[in-house]
Structures are given as structure tokens and as C-alpha cells.
């Protein structure tokens, strides 16, 4: 993965995103999902590195698939036609409190949740890999290479360089305020008081960063920033495998457009064998 040019990787990632989101047909989504697993495998990331990211993604998938599709049915409303084959009681009563719940889980909604898992899971596999396998020092050159103006691409690179400094300032400010009796963890008070309690941390960090940035801007001006075409410390170079990946990405995107919009194969449908499982 490290040998692939970051520009080719962004092109592939976006082509994958655009292609996968054209389909609700499980066959195509399965192909995309397998492709994403293979791509993720080549990243050679360790579980220890990515487990925090997967924890956050699993919260998102749980909320979108279990809560929005399986329990409330809202997540499926835009794609799955109304009605369907009910496999869970339309109504059931919770003992003791006698609450009546209208659940009505259908085979179609259950199949749709599998499709959602493949589609969102595939997209997550592709994009989760980026921060763990792409050198952040090459971001500026990458976005410049993808057609962004020099100023905007350099902003991205500069922002990455500022992160450790600002994180340290935040930590120092937090310690200094705590020494003065500041309690960010204090649970008393409503939501408004809790948000306002962030101010003693937010204001000094933001204002110090703005004051300090004047020096950075002056230094850049003295070095004639923006006066001529920019060069990059980490120049990027395409290899044959990068061209092959870009070609594959283009083919995937064009193939998806043809399959989904011309041949009309992208729509959602529930296979007979899955229906029979619940017959």
C-alpha cells in the first residue's frame, strides 16, 4: 500500500465511494465489499492501531442499521417498498408496563440491513485505512497533484503541522486553568452552563493561536510565499501500478454508471432463497 501514489489512492477511494453508492443490489454490493476487504488487507494495519476507529464506526453502523433500519424502519424507508413479509410480530406488549410496540420487522428490511452493512462497511474499510497508511507530510503535494490551487493545498499541509503545537497549547492551557481552580469535568449545571464552561479553555487557545499566526504569516511573506509556482519537499511520481489503479478506478466507475443507470441493475430486491428461509 505504501508504494501506491497517494493521488492514485484518493482517486480509487472516491471512485469506490461513487460506484458503491449507485447500488442497493446485494450482488454488486457483495463484489464491492470483497474488493474493500482485499484493499484493506493490503494496508497491513494491525488491530491494535485501528480498533478505536472500528469502535466508532461500529457505533455509527449500529445506529444506522440496527436502530434506523431494523428497529424503527426509517433507514429503509427511502429504498424498501412499503409492506412486505412480516417475520416479527406486528404488535407486542411489554409485560408489567403494558406498552404496545408496533415493530413489524419484514424479510425485506432484514435483507436491506445486510445490504447496508455491505455498502457502509465497504466504504468504511476503504476510508478508515487512509489515516493509518498515508504519510501526512505528502498531503499538500497530493492535493496539489489532484488539481487544488497551491494556497489551498499548502493550507492543508500547514494545518497538519500546526496540530501537535496546538494540542500541546491546549494541554498547557488546561493545566494552567486547573491550577486556578477550573473544573471542566464538573457535572453540575445544565447543557448551557456546560458549554459555557469550555470558554476558559477555548478563548486563550484560540487567541494565542491567532496572535502567533501573525509571526508565521510574516515569515512566509519574507520568503515570498505565493509569488511563484510552488515546489514540494516530497515530490510525487506515478509508477505503472498507479496508472493501472487509476485505470481500474475509471473502469469501475464507468461500469457502475452503465450497470446502475443504463442497464438499471442497481435497484434493491430480495432474493427468493432468503424469503424461503422465513417462510
Amino acid at each position: 500500500m505504501d508504494k501506491i501514489d497517494p493521488r492514485a489512492r484518493w482517486i480509487f477511494s472516491f471512485a469506490f465511494l461513487l460506484s458503491a453508492t449507485m447500488f442497493w443490489n446485494a450482488t454488486f454490493l457483495f463484489i464491492f465489499f470483497i474488493l474493500a476487504i482485499i484493499w484493506y488487507y493490503f494496508g497491513k494495519t494491525k488491530w491494535k492501531e485501528t480498533r478505536h476507529g472500528w469502535f466508532l464506526i461500529s457505533i455509527m453502523l449500529f445506529s444506522m442499521i440496527v436502530i434506523n433500519t431494523i428497529i424503527t424502519g426509517g433507514g429503509a424507508g427511502g429504498v424498501v417498498p412499503p409492506g412486505g413479509h412480516v417475520i416479527w410480530p406486528q404488535k407486542f406488549t411489554i409485560p408489567l408496563v403494558n406498552w404496545e410496540i408496533n415493530f413489524g420487522l419484514t424479510v425485506e428490511r432484514l435483507w436491506f440491513s445486510l445490504c447496508q452493512l455491505m455498502r457502509l462497511g465497504g466504504i468504511s474499510l476503504i476510508f478508515l485505512l487512509i489515516p493509518y497508511t498515508m504519510d501526512s507530510r505528502a498531503y499538500g503535494a497530493t492535493f496539489h497533484g489532484l488539481g487544488m490551487p497551491d494556497n489551498v493545498a499548502y493550507t492543508m499541509e500547514l494545518a497538519i503541522r500546526f496540530i501537535p503545537t496546538l494540542a500541546r497549547d491546549l494541554s498547557v492551557t488546561l493545566d494552567a486553568q486547573k491550577a486556578r481552580g477550573y473544573e471542566i469535568e464538573k457535572v453540575k449545571g445544565g447543557i448551557f452552563k456546560k458549554i459555557a464552561r469550555i470558554a476558559p479553555l477555548l478563548v486563550p487557545v484560540t487567541m494565542n493561536a491567532i496572535i502567533g499566526s501573525e509571526d508565521v504569516a510574516n515569515a512566509m511573506d519574507l520568503r515570498c510565499f505565493g509569488q511563484a509556482k510552488r515546489t514540494w519537499i516530497y515530490p510525487l511520481e506515478y509508477h505503472w501500478w498507479d496508472y493501472a489503479l487509476i485505470g481500474f478506478s475509471a473502469l469501475m466507475l464507468v461500469g457502475s454508471i452503465v450497470a446502475a443507470h443504463i442497464l438499471d441493475l442497481g435497484g434493491f430486491w430480495t432474493p427468493e432463497w432468503f424469503m424461503n428461509l422465513f417462510a
Binding site: 494556497n151 499548502y154 493550507t155 492543508m156 500547514l158 494545518a159 497538519i160 503541522r161 500546526f162 496540530i163 503545537t165 496546538l166 487557545v205 484560540t206 493561536a209 491567532i210 499566526s213 508565521v216 504569516a217 512566509m220 510565499f225 505565493g226
Partner: peptide, 10 residues
């Protein structure tokens, strides 16, 4: 450019 970078990093 610098303010945008500072804003993004913050």
C-alpha cells in the same frame, strides 16, 4: 492561508 490552517488545526 495561515489563519485557515490555524482554524483547521484548532
Amino acid at each position: 492561508v495561515v489563519f485557515a490552517a490555524i482554524g483547521a488545526a484548532l
